[in-house]
C-alpha cells in the first residue's frame, strides 16, 4: 500500500489522478497548505507527496526543502507549468521524482507507477557486501 499526501489550493486538481489510481492500492490524503502538510507528515507515514508550486502559505519548493531536512527519504512530485529545462534548473537538487502538469490524469498515474517501479528495481540491486579489492 502506497500512502500519498496531496497538497494543493483546490482539491479538484487531483480528481482525475485519484480516479486513475482507483484500482490500485494507493491511499490519498489531501491538504491545502504547507503548514498542514508538515503537521500531517510528522504524525503519519507517507511514501510520497505531490504538491503545487504555489501554496497559500509558501511555495512547493520551500515545502520540499522543509520536508527533506526532516526526512530525505520522502519522494516528491510537483505540479508545474515550467518548461522541462526550467523545471530541471529549479528543482533537480531536491531530487523531485517527476514533474506533473497542473492537472494530472491517467497518463501521469501510469508514468508515476512506472518510475517508482524502476527506482525500486535499481534499489533492489544496491546491497552488496563490500567493494572489490584493488
Amino acid at each position: 500500500m502506497i500512502h500519498v499526501l496531496l497538497v494543493s489550493r483546490e482539491k479538484t486538481v487531483f480528481k482525475e489522478l485519484e480516479a486513475a489510481f482507483a484500482d490500485i492500492k494507493i491511499t490519498f490524503d489531501w491538504t491545502n497548505s504547507a503548514q498542514n502538510a508538515l503537521s500531517m507528515l510528522s504524525k503519519e507515514k507517507f511514501d510520497l507527496f505531490i504538491t503545487e508550486e504555489q501554496l497559500p502559505d509558501t511555495t512547493g519548493r520551500d515545502l520540499i526543502e522543509k520536508i527533506l531536512f526532516k526526512n530525505a527519504m520522502m519522494d516528491s512530485v510537483v505540479l508545474s507549468a515550467l518548461s522541462h529545462d526550467d523545471f530541471h534548473e529549479a528543482y533537480e537538487g531536491l531530487g523531485v521524482l517527476m514533474q506533473f502538469p497542473l492537472v494530472p490524469g491517467k497518463k501521469q498515474a501510469r508514468d508515476l507507477l512506472d518510475h517508482l517501479n524502476r527506482i525500486a528495481r535499481i534499489a533492489s540491486r544496491t546491497s552488496k557486501p563490500k567493494g572489490e579489492q584493488i
Binding site: A72, M73, D75, S76, E92, G95, V96, L97, M98, H115, R118, I119, I122, A123, R125, T126, S127, K128, P129, K130, G131, E132, Q133, I134
Partner: peptide
C-alpha cells in the same frame, strides 16, 4: 589500510536515495 572499488548503480531522476543506501549498506 585498504583500497577497494564498488560499481555505481544506474541513476534515475529522483532516485537520489539509491546511492545513499548503497554507501550506507557498504
Amino acid at each position: 589500510k585498504e583500497v577497494s572499488i564498488l560499481q555505481n548503480q544506474e541513476h534515475a531522476q529522483g532516485g537520489c536515495m539509491v546511492p545513499v543506501n548503497l554507501l550506507s549498506d557498504n
